[in-house]
Design a binder for these strands. Structure first.
Lengths: 195, 195
DNA sequence: TTGACTAGTGTACATTTGTACACTAAACTA
DNA sequence: TAGTTTAGTGTACAAATGTACACTAGTCAA
């Protein structure tokens, strides 16, 4: 079995992601075969085994549809230059894929709604969702979720002469130099515009 | 069949989401039964039918694992006030669930990487991903992805005395009053902090 | 007291499904 | 020339799987 993914294998992986995005569940071996004109289930199994070996696919043995692309199944095409007009998106316009990462659901992350204007200078607005990876420490300059008394806040962690402190990114908000506990590091910001 | 979801049905829906988050694919009728101590597959089917009828579950008939919760399977807990320390997140701290919506993958959306500082005043930074819903028109005040010549840009759509134009949100960037085509409306912003 | 609804058991069955095996064939490499 | 890799067909089979059906039982409202 090869060390590099073939174009057919890429198409198989793409079809699996497409199936998950469209229907909510992965295809069967035979559904893959039907789409990619592979008549024999054994031949599809061969490619799935190769994809698993290459670390591009997780499989659950002997389970129907036991396929999970390692790159998230929630993929949105990232457009490069053009891509005008309605209709399907042309393949040549797709620069890559945005993965809304499935690993975020695995317990290591949580979300915190941002309250107030104290971080607008860093592009974090009131109402944004901060995606936080739980960890007890962070580095100078990281944006973190911290617990100050009873309140969870989103601030930038800094180290000064007097030790660690939390700084805001908006005029009029003084740094927090008192006691605080780090809940985790902010790894992403998600904002939703209504309607 | 009832008009309201029962607590058992909620647990079934939760288990389906859990299965997808953990393994990448939904459970079978019998797997649901095994987890929730329902011995008969017919009984599980009864609840799945009820969930479908209530609009909480999409089903693909006669397909193994043909289950897709309407609320996205990619769920991250949103914490309310407390929730400090390591370890599992306490149920009483969870304010709700952030759904990284599966519908985003269904062809109606694409992503565009934001280039430049022209929208920093609206909290949209260089390098952010804009999640765009494809549509040909938008309303006054909407943030849109538009095509100006060959370039895709993220701007705020406005209507003035002289007609529609695109405005930036940063000093020194003049409005775009020439020809442009709307590619879609920006429905979300996703930012990823590395490491 | 009848009906509707929730909740369940047990059985049955036709398909679906993953996997295994034997075999073929082209392209490339050592 | 022999071996490896990619790519495929066809067949077979046990197990998994969705669905259907007949039946039971408790609760609650009309």
């Amino acid at each position: 079995m090869g060390r590099e993914v073939t174009s057919l294998q890429k198409r198989i992986l793409g079809f699996i992601s497409e199936s998950i995005a469209d229907r909510g569940f992965p295809p069967t071996v035979r559904e893959i075969g039907a789409r990619l004109r592979i008549a024999s289930p054994g031949s599809v199994a061969f490619h799935l085994k190769a994809l698993e070996r290459l670390g591009l696919l997780e499989r659950t043995a002997a389970r129907s549809r036991g396929l999970a692309p390692v790159e998230s199944p929630l993929r949105v095409p990232i457009l490069g230059r053009a891509g005008a007009g309605p209709g399907p998106i042309a393949v040549e316009d797709v620069e890559g894929w945005l993965n809304l990462d499935r690993s975020a659901g695995r317990g290591a992350h949580f979300a915190l709604r941002v309250r107030g204007e104290s971080m607008t200078g860093a592009g974090i607005l009131d109402g944004d969702m901060a995606l936080v990876r739980r960890q007890e420490a962070a580095e100078h300059g990281d944006i973190v979720a911290a617990l100050v008394g009873e309140d969870g806040v989103i601030k930038r962690l800094r180290r000064g002469a007097a030790g660690w402190f939390l700084s805001s990114a908006h005029p009029g908000y003084p740094p927090i130099t008192g006691a605080f506990a780090i809940m985790g590091k902010v790894v992403g910001i998600l904002r939703h515009y209504e309607a």
